[in-house]
Every structure is written in structure tokens, then in C-alpha cells.
Simulated scan of single mutants.
Amino acid sequence: MSIRPPSSRVLRLISRNERNIQCLRRVPQCLAQRRSLATKPAPSPAPGERLDPITLHRLEYQRREYYKRRSYYAGTGFVLGMIAIWITATSIELPPKPIQADSGRRADDPLVVLGKEKKIVIQKLGEEPEEVVDSLPTGTSTVPTFPRVLEYYDDAGEGPASNDDRMVEYQCLGLGLRTVSFLGIEVYVVGMYIATDDIAALQEALIRKIDPIASTLVAGEKEKLKAKLYDPEEGSEIWNDVLKSTGIRTLIRIVPTKNTDFGHLKDAWVRHLTARAQSNKEEFGDESFGVSIQEFKQLFNRGSVPKGKELVLSRDTKGKVAVWYDDGKNGATRLGQVHDERVSRGLWLNYLAGKTVASEPARKSIIEGVMEFVERPVGTVATQVVSHNV
């Protein structure tokens, strides 16, 4: 008896049953895996990845502090860099240009005389008389003193500058440092001098501002005058009238405390004159004043002004301003002049009055010097100065 092989249909049914059996055998294993996955806890983050709100706040604070420090360092570096550039620029000595005096003399002519310090005789008990220069402290070690009294050649007189008859005695009204920027960088020492013979006219003019018939001021009146001189508007009016009406001869003596040049000095003065012309067009706004400013600028088209050298601006009885410079090598030289008295008056007011002045210590010193004048009877100050120097 032969056995017939199963048909293809039977074979398919057997194969399907075997697969179903295998699937049923895997069910418990799958269920166990699902059960273990459901009960297994979620993986915890690494310690460095735990960012709670406090940690986030701390990190944000640290980030802000970092950028704040960077801005501070950058700002400090910028300021120090600018200071270094300024110091380097102002320390370079430019080669001096040849000075051409308008007087027709050679720059090295020994007869060209600017002025000389006035010496006085001091005699101590039991000692020989000693001739010394009476000086005033300036407040800086670079230019430690200014002469209290000096002799200066009369620019309005006749005859050669070397003639002793042309020399006029001047007394210091006050002095002070000019500084620039918030760092208080010293630029120069400035002193204002008045001819000894003209002190009485200054006394009388200032006393009349308080009491028209008085010959001296008492304590309360002195304080009243001082307040007026410090007031921006009243002080400008008083000094403007004194300079215009009295014809007093005055000097502005400037000695730089660091190397500079004529251009820097000129620019500051021209800016002040231009601002005055714009604020008072009625008196300073005409075309002739602009021409006078250009003439004044031409006097300073020169080279460097080393520290310790002397520059003097003189104002004569008619208000003419003359500029003198002593480089310490060739003798003092007259650089030129401007006849428009408004130029010298504007320059003088830059140191005497207004809301801001070129040197507040100088203005304060000048006002204190004026107070010493007005507390004495008119005419007695010049007598005391002359007798002191005999």
C-alpha cells in the first residue's frame, strides 16, 4: 500500500499552525518585557544637566557681570589710551620757527628788552643789606614763583627799548594756574600786573562803584564789591567800564608749565573773542572787529613755546595790545600789536569776569589783590610800593 504525499493545501495549513504556535509561545516573553518597561524608572539627568530656576538665575547674573567687567576694562583702556596720546603729543617739541620782530631789530639784538624783575633791598638786624627779588608762589613746582614787582618797557613811549627812561614799574594784581579737562591738567601760570603809577586810578574806579564820594572802603563795602566782581554780569560790567574809561596800563604774563605752541594758545583766545562777538553783536559784531581778530591771529603763526618760557601781552593807555616772547636764547622779541582796544579788553575779560574764566584761581587771586587796594586811601598804595623799593 503506497502512501500519498500530503497535498499543497495540507502543507500550507501545517505551516500556518506552526507559526501560530511559535507566536503563542512568544506572548509571555513579550508581556514580561512590556511589564518591565512600564515599571522601569526614567533615566535621571547627569549632575551637570540639572538646571533649576536658582541655577539659571545665577548663571544669568554671572553672564551679565562678565560683560559688565569687559565694558569697564574697555572704557578704562580707551581713557588711558587717550591720555597717553595727549601726553605724547604735548611732549614733542616742534622745531621753533624763526621769530620776526615787527620792531625792525634782529631777534638776537641785546637791546630788545622785555622786562626785568624788580629787586628790593632787605636788611636784617646786624647783617649787611641784601638785594633780592620779591616773588610770589604759584602753586606748581614747574614754575614755582612769579615776581611781585617787575619793570617793563613802555611800549607807548619814545626812544630805544634799552633806555631806562622807557622802563615802567608794574605790580602783580594776582596770579593762578590755568588747567584743562576734568583731570586738571596744568597748562600755564598766568599773572596780571598793573603799572604802579596807575594803581590810584584803579582804586578810585572800583571804590566809585560802591560809594561815589568815598576814598576807601570799609569791611562791609569790600564784601559788597567782592560779590559784584564774582557775579558774572556785574563783574563783566565793572571790569569792562574800568578797562574802557581809566586807561590803566596792565600786563598779562604767561609761563607754560609744559611744552606747548603758539597755535594752542592762540586758539583758546580766539575762541573766547569769537564767542564774545556772538554774544554782544552790538559792540563786537562789526566787520572791523573780525579784521582785528585776524590781525591778532597772525601774531601767533609761529612754532613751539617750551615750558618755563615767558609770553607777555601788554595793554597801554589806549588799549593797544602788544605781544612779547622770550625764548631764553635770543632775548625778548616783540611779535607785533593790534590797535583795536576791544581785542585787548576781550582778552583781559577772559581772565577777570564772566560765568567761566580761563583761570578761576587767577581771578580769585586778582580779586583778593584788588581788595587790598580798595581798603587803603586812594593814592597811598603806589607811595608804599615806591618807598618799599627805595
Rank of each mutant, 00 (worst) to 15 (best):
I122H: 08
L125S: 13
G126F: 02
E127H: 08
E127Q: 12
E128L: 10
E128T: 09
P129L: 06
P129I: 08
E130K: 15
E130W: 00
V133N: 05
D134K: 04
L136Y: 02
P137L: 15
P137G: 11
P137Q: 09
P137K: 04
T138L: 00
T138Y: 00
T138D: 03
T138N: 02
G139S: 10
T140Q: 02
T140A: 08
S141M: 13
T142Y: 03
V143D: 00
P144F: 01
P144L: 02
T145C: 02
P147W: 01
R148G: 10
R148A: 11
R148T: 11
V149L: 11
V149K: 01
L150M: 13
L150Y: 01
L150P: 02
E151C: 12
Y152N: 15
Y152I: 11
Y152T: 14
D154S: 11
D155W: 04
A156R: 07
A156H: 12
A156N: 10
G157D: 12
E158W: 05
E158S: 10
P160A: 04
A161P: 07
A161D: 13
S162L: 04
N163W: 00
D164A: 11
D164Y: 04
R166S: 13
M167Y: 03
M167G: 07
V168A: 13
V168P: 04
V168M: 12
Y170M: 05
Y170F: 09
Q171N: 12
Q171T: 11
Q171P: 05
Q171V: 14
C172I: 10
C172E: 07
L173F: 01
G174F: 00
L175G: 15
G176Q: 03
G176T: 06
L177F: 01
R178G: 08
R178M: 14
R178N: 08
R178D: 10
T179S: 09
S181P: 05
S181C: 08
F182P: 12
F182G: 07
G184L: 03
I185G: 04
I185A: 06
V187S: 07
V187Y: 00
V187H: 02
Y188I: 07
V189M: 05
V190C: 09
